[in-house]
Nucleic acid binder design. Structure first.
Ligand code: FES
Ligand code: FES
Lengths: 128, 128
DNA sequence: AGAATACCTACTAAAATAGTAGGATTAATA
DNA sequence: TATTAATCCTACTATTTTAGTAGGTATTCT
């Protein structure tokens, strides 16, 4: 079981931005501070922006700011956006291909609830 | 975030065996009941056996039995064996390649604890 | 005009996953 | 002893996912 590194990078970048909130910051700085490829960061931030977690400004003094106060952003939001919906197994999503007796599906459903609870229980503001 | 189907299959197979406990059952039966490929099941059970979750008997009336009472087998055991150690991110395993400020690592560490707690909190006997 | 920034599309190399194929070994039974 | 039904073992392969690169466009400040 693993979350993608994309989720890890996304979370780190958001924490970085949160520390700077509500000032604007550009990707070169973040890239240097976090040791991540600039080009890759650009991709990640396009996703974050599309999902309204950040607001951007183009041009000479451009950069990104969090779209909301870090108090109102949950780790779970970021992670689900970067990694896709939390669903440890098909079962947990509702529809399951495997036609089984499926006593086992309760495991995945319960697990999913717990993961969501944990991840949405953490505010970005707690990570600064 | 996803667990491998291998973990799903493994869990289902173990639940199936648990229902039959403590009688022996062969893979053809399980294969038919669960709609899983026999050849694939053989592979999975080699792993389960290697990790002492099941005991086998070869030959004419061969098959598998759980190595212990379903009361003493945890969902977490099965899943970690089939899927590898639970570690949603490198951070959570202790060593992390990403050299970061790493406020974010607490997310992964907390999450890992919760997942383990949940999965080891479920006994195979509860899934029958 | 120039420079620095975000924005966009497409591609690729590497790793993980899921599963198949073919046979060897073991043990009960006829 | 021959047959048969089961576990056991090694190796391969096709597919998908992941992680990341490359090259170029659009915007805005100075
Ligand atoms: S419903 Fe998903 S394994 Fe049965
Ligand atoms: S320690 Fe893992 S991302 Fe920082």
């Amino acid at each position: 079981m693993k979350f993608s590194t994309r989720a890890g990078y996304g979370l780190r970048a958001m924490v970085n931005l949160a520390k700077n909130h509500p000032r604007r910051k550009n990707l070169q700085e973040i890239s240097k501070e976090e040791g991540m490829s600039l080009k890759y960061l650009e991709q990640l931030f396009r996703i974050l922006k599309k999902n309204n977690l950040v607001v951007s400004r183009k041009g000479r003094v451009g950069g990104y700011v969090l779209a909301k106060n870090p108090k109102f952003i949950r780790a779970g939001e970021i992670i689900e956006i970067m990694d896709g919906p939390i669903a440890p197994m098909e079962c947990a999503g509702g529809r399951c291909d495997m036609k089984c007796s499926c006593a086992s599906s309760v495991v995945w459903i319960k697990l999913r609830q717990q993961i969501k609870k944990t991840l949405y229980g953490i505010k970005l503001s707690e990570l600064i």
